[in-house]
Amino acid sequence: MSRPVLEIKNLSCSVDHKEILHGINLTVRGGEIHVIMGPNGTGKSTLASTLMGHPSYKVNGGQALLNGEDLLAMPVDERARKGLFLAMQYPAEIQGVTNADFMRTAMNAKLPADHQIGVFPFRKALNQAVSELEMDASLPDRYLNEGFSGGEKKRNEILQMKLLKPAVAILDEIDSGLDIDALRIVGQNVTRMAQDRGEEMGLLLITHYQRLLDYIVPDYVHVIMNGRVVRTGDKELAEKLERDGYEWLRQEAGLEAEPSGSETAADLLSGLPL
């Protein structure tokens, strides 16, 4: 597999006729780990949902290219089959569909009709991933996310990422709702996968807290404020933000405090029932 590259060029988008992103520029290559941080309501989750093609978000301008192909022109499922993966902040619960049936269907969706994965290789891969994530052995036969705790849902997103082997994975606040042990398990699994796959996979993490970065060491840390990337640095930038907050950066960038309410609601829209 060649080294993937996700290029985001001057991307702007809106939700409910309100522009949230005002020109995002970012490039994620295989083998790189990027982290996006920023105050509530600045557009982090909006960026993730827009890249995946959530129907609530309208692209106003700019480009998003995956390996040179126009991502924004593709339907959601095609983006996924091209190798984009979004671990969601609020995964949907699907009654009556078992995790195992869903995962096998999703894996086969990326494979040609004459190379579909068989039951036994699939169960072997699934059981191994369940074990590595220290999940309940009954999870594959439970309905997709139904009745899962917040932590189980997040681990289930990582389970899917492990099995689907995406080219570029976006993890939207994968650390929220995780207890200390679960955070360690998720962090270690993501890091191991990044190491194993090397340049075959790029990672874009969205988080509020530096603690996740104790387990997943980033190459780049970007700060989004007011719908734009206002600063890019390395792990030390995340540590400074954890220590000092965002106010110094806001002043440095000459930004006004973002209004709470509408923008926060727009960010929270991703994952909520429409």
């Binding site: 499922d77 969601m88 269907t105 029932p273």
Partner: peptide, 18 residues
């Protein structure tokens, strides 16, 4: 539910499959 459809599609299932 539109959110459920989006979730399944985001894993590579076509709209009909979802």
């Amino acid at each position: 539910d539109a959110e459920s459809l989006f979730y399944l599609q985001s894993r590579g299932l076509t709209l009909d499959e979802a």
